[in-house]
């Protein structure tokens, strides 16, 4: 439903609408939301046990997705994070490319700013090409997405395509209202484990 993704003044996609589209009818998709706005975005789409919103660990979201994808090869894993968070752990793109997890997608919501700290510009504001870096690392399916009409194909690839997939999606920089997930991280970990493993998760 690309028509449902609103755009801001500059024509860039609204981040909440995009995330809602990517997580719509998600089946068993597991989602990790990187520190800051992406964690609030996945929560706004529905705070479910299959979501792991991050309150910290900046730079770690993509690698968390790799560990989860390797542990659960029959499930789809989607990391949704920001440009600043991805830049802090950019080496993960090389590590993921070498491991070639077929069930892992990393989507960077690129607003070209550090949104939680006062909207300072990130390197993507100055031309740093994250999709190009991912492709050069060896992630063959690396996309730069600037138009909402490409969102449904991205969603299809996340749910059914051959990974690993990387997408840098240019999103509008306007802030969205805070939608906070639980802050107790032990709960966040336990509820996702139980959603995947059942009650046996707590007896492992």
């Amino acid at each position: 439903m690309s028509g449902s993704i609103e755009t801001g003044k500059g024509g860039k996609m609204n981040r909440r609408a995009l995330v809602r589209e990517l997580l719509r009818d998600r089946g068993g998709l597991l989602a990790i939301g990187g520190l800051g706005a992406p964690a609030w975005d996945i929560t706004a789409a529905g705070d479910v046990p299959e979501n792991l919103p991050l309150w910290g660990g900046m730079g770690g979201a993509a690698m968390m997705g790799l560990g989860l994808a390797l542990a659960q090869p029959s499930r789809r894993v989607l990391v949704i994070t920001g440009d600043g968070e991805m830049l802090m752990g950019i080496g993960a793109l090389a590590t993921i490319a070498v491991q070639r997890p077929a069930n892992l997608s990393v989507v960077v919501l690129d607003n070209e700013h550090y949104g939680e700290t006062g909207m300072q510009e990130t390197h993507t504001r100055h031309g740093v090409d994250l999709a190009g870096m991912a492709r050069a690392a060896g992630i063959a399916d690396s996309r730069l997405i600037t138009d909402a009409k490409d969102a449904p194909a991205l969603r299809d690839a996340i749910l059914t395509g051959q990974g690993p997939l990387f997408a840098q999606v240019k999103v509008d920089e306007s802030p969205e209202p805070l939608v906070l997930p639980p802050r107790e991280a032990a709960l966040l970990q336990a509820r996702m484990r139980e959603a995947i493993l059942g009650p046996a998760a707590h007896l492992q």
Partner: peptide, 20 residues
């Protein structure tokens, strides 16, 4: 999994544990 820096491993093993 050979890492580019050790902190990647801390993050990876958290993901592994999420998946059992």
């Amino acid at each position: 999994v050979t890492l580019t820096t050790e902190e990647e491993g801390v993050a990876q093993l958290f993901g592994a544990w999420l998946g059992g």
